[in-house]
């Protein structure tokens, strides 16, 4: 009995793989087949639209009508448009201030979390929550916190602390609205920065600090000459991502102010949306979106040199 089954299984193992299997063992085909879905999707829905967007920026396309090439007319028009310049100004201002705030507070939080704390993993989980929850939904919560009549911050300031006599008007005029949006953006960005930097902090060897302690360094010196340079590579990458995604932010502003009051809080992305989709001026919207690209290239180069510096600092090979 056993004598008959053993050769049978042995034969089966010896079976030649089918034609399809052999095709998949042919390396060039395998590489092609493996890369096809990812590169196909990215090519069709990312690279092509990127080119199409640049082309649209030079046409007068509107919804329902194919445009013709009009050269730089869209850009010439935008350069005379104060609302566009206001959006450029606010995008840069918003990115600058929010990034500064996020990194200052995020680094502080990361340094705090790097201590020996009870319930550390629970704490880390709680801190990451603002980043997990859909931005629009937390933005709606901020909208309610910034309500002119029933703002809880106004309630605290007026009725509990008594430091003010009138409610704050968070979103009613230009500058308070701008600062309110920046505050909401910082609130949302802190967790990402803090947790990424915490990961960077944990890779720094304690022996460096011990050596510095023996040499009689002050806490500031330890931060300035050990923590900060060792954190630099990860800081550069996180900052690049943060700058790119803050500069092209859409959700927060759209949910809270929709660019108002009187267009004072438009970012380039919200302005592009407003002109392009509800306004129907696809060409003009695309031109606004395309004008973000120089800033993005700048941020990417920043990232590239940050990475290059890491290799130089840590003596890593190119991999």
């Amino acid at each position: 009995m056993s004598a008959t089954t053993v050769p049978a299984t042995w034969n089966k193992a010896r079976q030649q793989p089918g034609r399809l299997a052999r095709l998949f063992d042919y390396k060039p085909f395998l590489v092609f087949a493996c890369l096809l879905p990812a590169l196909g999707l990215l090519g069709v829905f990312l690279t092509y639209p990127l080119g199409l967007g640049i082309w649209l920026a030079f046409t007068d396309t509107t919804i329902g009508r194919r445009g013709v090439w009009i050269g730089f007319e869209n850009f010439e028009y935008l350069f005379t448009d104060p609302i566009f310049w206001n959006a450029v100004f606010y995008s840069v201002f918003y990115t600058g201030v929010a990034t500064l705030g996020k990194f200052a507070l995020g680094l502080w939080l990361a340094l705090l979390l790097n201590n020996h704390l009870p319930l550390k993993s629970l704490l880390r989980a709680i801190i990451l929550l603002p980043w997990i929850v859909p931005t629009v939904l937390s933005a709606i919560a901020f909208w309610w916190i910034y309500d002119p009549q029933f703002s809880i911050i106004s309630y605290l300031a007026v009725d509990v602390l008594g430091v003010r006599t009138t409610n704050f008007d968070f979103l009613g005029s230009a500058w308070p609205a701008r600062w309110s949006l920046i505050a909401a953006n910082i609130w949302r960005g802190i967790p990402f920065v803090a947790i990424s930097l915490l990961a960077g902090l944990q890779t720094i060897s304690p022996s460096l600090y011990e050596a510095a302690l023996l040499d009689g360094s002050t806490p500031w010196q330890r931060f300035r000459y050990i923590t900060f340079p060792m954190l630099m590579p990860i800081l550069a990458i996180v900052m690049t991502f943060s700058i790119i995604f803050t500069f092209t932010d859409f959700q927060l502003v759209y949910a809270i102010t929709r660019g108002g009051p009187v267009n004072s809080t438009h970012l380039l992305a919200t302005l592009a949306f407003q002109r392009g989709i509800p306004g129907g001026q696809l060409g003009e919207g695309a031109a606004i979106a395309v004008s973000m690209i120089p800033f993005l290239i700048f941020a990417t180069l920043f990232s590239y040199f940050g990475l290059a510096r890491r290799k130089w600092q840590q003596g890593e090979g190119n991999d």
Partner: peptide, 24 residues
Amino acid sequence: YVGLAIYLAYLVPPSILFIPLATM
């Protein structure tokens, strides 16, 4: 290079793609 290209694709934000994608 393919890896680098995919990394660069991550740096292209949806805000500059939504208008051409809408027409597509």
